[in-house]
């Protein structure tokens, strides 16, 4: 072979190698689809993508955001004095509060202060969080000016990204069920529970613990579960939560491999587990002051 041929082959090899290198280098994940940001009148004003986990480290208040993330994930372990059961905030606020139909924190900072029917009052974010401490966590409120409260708020604020006050990310929240529209069948609910829930939440709703005694899978009833004052104790809230979020680990879709049950399945299984024994919430008598109590109010 003469020099010319050799150099042509050499150039060809280099070009092909460079092309292959380049190809694989840029062969990456497709761009994350954006959610629309809307103003108070519902006009699109921008786009939202959940911030990347890795970017948390570069934030000015990274320490506080990370602390907040941990508190929301490991509430029972980190705040034993304020949590009266085995739950964590993110037991219900799915996938780090990032999942639209899983009680997300995406709009929380921008939506508060907000009027709530239960106390018939406008609550600020700290008060709202403490509502979950007293009911969902069957515990006691934390100091509104504490480092812990600030950390949780900072995490939610980080999640908001650069969506301004007055704007919201246009996501659908779970739609509360109108209780009168369904006829729950708790017997069928028990069958569903045994087939699709018990492997994780236990045959007796007791959940499953890890080597440190922390819950891997939270209890669905009993002393370690939410109390009668929690939203989850009400069929209108439990049913859509279960519909969209449980079971996990059964589908191929991130974040948690959830599937959507049928509405009737969600109603039936919720009718089975919500009425099981759980802690009382004596202060429930003060809820909905001066207005009629909702149909699924839990007096017992």
């Amino acid at each position: 072979m003469n020099k010319g041929t050799v150099s042509i082959i050499a150039i060809a090899v280099v070009v092909v190698a460079a092309w292959m290198w380049n190809e694989s280098r840029y062969y990456d994940a497709p761009a994350t689809p954006a959610l629309t940001v809307v103003d108070a009148d519902g006009n699109a004003v921008g786009e939202y993508r959940p911030p990347l986990a890795r970017d948390m480290l570069a934030e000015e208040n990274a320490d506080s955001i990370i602390y907040g993330m941990r508190l929301l994930n490991e509430t029972a372990r980190l705040l034993p004095d304020n949590v009266g059961n085995g739950l964590n905030c993110n037991s219900c606020h799915m996938a780090q509060g990032k999942r639209p139909l899983g009680a997300p924190y995406i709009n929380t900072i921008n939506d508060y202060p907000k009027f709530m029917g239960r106390p018939q009052a406008v609550l600020n974010i700290q008060e709202r969080i403490n509502g979950c401490f007293r009911r969902s966590m069957n515990g006691t409120p934390i100091d509104e000016s504490s480092e812990e409260m600030q950390a949780m708020v900072d995490y939610m604020d980080w999640l908001r990204g650069d969506v301004e006050k007055g704007h919201r990310v246009d996501i659908k929240n779970m739609e509360y069920f109108k209780v009168a529209e369904y006829t729950p069948d708790p017997v069928r609910g028990e069958e569903i529970y045994v087939q699709q829930c018990a492997a994780c939440h236990g045959a007796n709703g007791e959940g499953m613990k890890d080597q440190f005694g922390d819950f891997i899978f939270p209890a669905l009833w009993g002393d370690e579960s939410f109390n009668l004052g929690a939203g989850m104790a009400r069929m209108s809230r439990a049913s859509p939560f279960v519909l969209h979020n449980m079971p996990i680990g059964v589908g191929l879709d991130a974040p948690l491999g959830q599937i959507t049950l049928s509405k009737q399945d969600a109603v039936d299984v919720s009718a089975y587990f919500t009425v099981k024994p759980r802690p009382d919430f004596p202060d429930k008598i003060y809820d909905w002051p001066g207005v009629p109590k909702p149909a699924d109010f839990r007096s017992h």
Binding site: A29, R54, Q195, G249, G251, D253, G257
Partner: peptide
Amino acid sequence: YDMMAFTMPGFYHLSNQDLAD
């Protein structure tokens, strides 16, 4: 032998850098 068979969701949407890390 088990009541449920579980699934690991796919994380195709994470970037190459996130996945490598």
